[in-house]
Design a binder for these strands. Structure first.
Lengths: 124, 124
DNA sequence: CTTGACATACGAATTAATTAGTACTACAAA
DNA sequence: TTTGTAGTACTAATTAATTCGTATGTCAAG
């Protein structure tokens, strides 16, 4: 058996990002946004949003004839969960080697680190 | 159609981690290591390692009667690629919001940031 | 009233990922 | 020489993820 994704799948995430931008959004809204980038059927988007609803990421409400969808969690919450899952799976739960990667591949430079240091000051 | 994983799937990664630890490793080596944590069939491991070979992550060589497998890329190379894919998909390619998440969720503390700052000094 | 636009509901097809069973082969021990 | 062990090759079954078609209903315009 294949273990179920605990977090959002790639396509689910793509749709959630668009919903977070709009909040609320109809199937048509998302369909048109996706069409800008690739060919996709209206019913495909509908199916995906229904799945996101049964998974608990979206809630819908009838408005006129169509459903209007809203996220049940913030983007930060969901993406934070995805990040945690990634760190668990790839880095065995510790964020430091991830950070080392970011630094060594120049994804993160000194300037950003300093910005983060200031952020930590604000938090504590 | 479902788009193919460009990087390692969860089970593939689990096996690769074990191979990197051993280098080289036989199917039996990995099978026994996996058995410590969960029930799995010997042939399942064989199939997975064959897939990893056709995908180019492992190369095999006959030794006595069994095959001995070695990784074709280092752990850093492969995991670096997975990290890049994750950043692209989840954070639209920019590492800074990832770093913000790490800091805000206390996955990364000031001590580690300072350690990274020193690492940057060494690199440049 | 008929027609077209637009929405949902339902079902199904396709591909990837994961798991494992069965057949067959080679070697070593009895 | 027979038999058990350990390996590979091949096939197949299952589930998740992704995509979309068809049927059906509703409302508004003509």
């Amino acid at each position: 058996m294949r273990p179920k994704h605990t977090t959002l799948t790639p396509q689910e995430l793509e749709i959630m990002k668009l919903v977070w931008q709009r909040e609320p959004a109809t199937v048509r809204d998302i369909y048109e946004a996706l069409l800008e980038h690739r060919k996709i059927a209206y019913t495909t988007v509908m199916t995906m949003m229904k799945i996101l609803e049964t998974k608990g990421y979206l809630k819908k409400r009838r408005q006129d004839r169509a459903f209007v969808y809203r996220p049940t969690h913030t983007k930060n919450q969901v993406i934070g969960g995805m990040l945690r899952e990634f760190i668990d799976r790839v880095f065995n739960g510790s964020a430091e080697p991830l950070l080392v990667h970011l630094v060594k591949t120049r994804h993160i430079r000194e300037k950003e680190l300093q910005k983060m240091a200031r952020l930590i000051e604000e938090i504590k």
